[in-house]
């Protein structure tokens, strides 16, 4: 690896519940993202994807314990003050959220909120210049009647429109990194594709690095360069998307893929894998997937397998060879 990657996360661990309970929401997550590429993160709801993203943006509550390393263009973010982080957030790294219904402030107009995103980082800009730029941004995200939208409140817009506004806010300062946390999950199926297209087009134009959290294996397969599969707070498989999806080395990845009748279908619950995601307080010993795993042996109940390289892919399974060949 020549230059430092855009984003490099090492052994990121997040513990919730204060010193008394110390529930591990994320354990030793590591991944990297090169400039202008896309990393897909896949896993069931509650597996720790969103918390990982909030942790690396520094958006978790101060009493939540975070350890490990997050480097953004080589610069360490863990341990930075909120003040330092806030000058990065929204400027060089932006985020869009799952539910556009609740992510916009209901008492501020669209114009105010986009204008704020600009004003926070471009303090020298005049009000008129900010409004002009806000208008441009609305045009960039292809919202019809952008002039009118500026004066409207979030509740006057449809879900898809609101997500476009969220994207406009994220784009306000031309970020180098965009984190999209299930950006289309809450939207109508017909709108989902449009929003996804918009994101990809913007990424291409602006050469942003994109972390895409998604349920939709089809989309991830199509747009991501790399993919990381998360299960119960751990990354269990990680590598180039073609290899991971083509020859899965972890039984969970296999189950995910098998649960899709066709690769472009989204399935919320993973019917092909019996059992359900263990809750945060009741994580099994050893490999967290062993109670649901058809390959499980006694070692799996004792040892949590490390994420080890197998060719171009990293897998955390004691029986990765067997999984791949079976």
């Amino acid at each position: 690896m020549s230059a430092a990657p855009l984003l490099e996360v090492r052994d990121l661990t997040v513990r919730l519940g204060g010193p008394a309970r110390r529930l591990e929401a994320v354990r030793e997550a590591s991944f990297a993202l090169a400039e202008g590429t896309t990393l897909g993160i896949v896993g069931e709801s509650g597996c720790g994807k969103s918390i990982t993203m909030l942790a690396l943006m520094g958006l978790l509550a101060p009493d939540i314990e975070i350890s490990g390393s997050v480097r953004f263009r080589g610069e360490e973010l863990i341990g930075k003050s909120q003040r330092e982080l806030s000058s990065l957030r929204g400027k060089r790294m932006a985020m869009i959220f799952q539910d556009p219904m609740t992510s916009l402030n209901p008492v501020m107009t669209v114009g105010e909120q986009i204008g704020e995103a600009i004003a926070i980082h471009a303090t020298a800009l005049s009000r008129a210049a900010r409004q002009a730029r806000a208008l441009d941004l609305l045009k960039v995200v292809a919202i019809p009647f952008p002039e009118r939208r500026l004066r409207q409140y979030p509740h006057e817009l449809s879900g898809g429109m609101r997500q476009r506004v969220m994207i406009a806010i994220a784009m306000a300062n031309d970020p180098e990194l965009l984190i999209a946390d299930e950006p289309t999950t809450a939207l109508d199926v017909t709108v989902q594709a449009q929003i996804m297209e918009l994101l990809l087009q913007l990424q291409k134009e602006r050469k942003m690095g994109l972390v895409l959290i998604s349920h939709d294996l089809g989309v991830v397969a199509r747009v991501a360069n790399e993919v990381a599969i998360m299960y119960a707070g751990r990354i269990c498989e990680r590598g180039p998307v073609g290899t991971v999806f083509g020859r899965p080395g972890h039984p969970y990845t296999r189950g995910l893929l098998a649960s899709l009748p066709k690769i472009d279908r989204t399935v919320e619950s993973l019917i092909a894998i019996p059992g359900s995601l263990p809750s945060l307080a009741q994580r099994p010993s050893g490999c967290r997937f062993h109670p649901r795993c058809t390959f499980a042996q006694s070692i799996c109940t004792r040892d949590d397998p490390a994420l080890l390289p197998r060719g171009s892919v990293d897998v955390a399974c004691h029986f990765a060879d067997k999984v791949e060949t079976s």
């Binding site: 958006l59 957030r89 929204g90 959220f97 402030n105 209901p106 704020e116 926070i120 306000a172």
Partner: peptide, 29 residues
């Protein structure tokens, strides 16, 4: 505890702005 507070922080809003511009305006209702 609302999402739009996290979203405001994500766009770089500092503590005072989050408290007074975003949170208080809603809490005042």
């Amino acid at each position: 505890s609302q999402d739009y507070i996290v979203a405001a922080r994500a766009r770089g809003a500092r503590e005072l702005r989050v408290l007074f511009n975003h949170a208080l305006r809603n809490a005042m209702i």
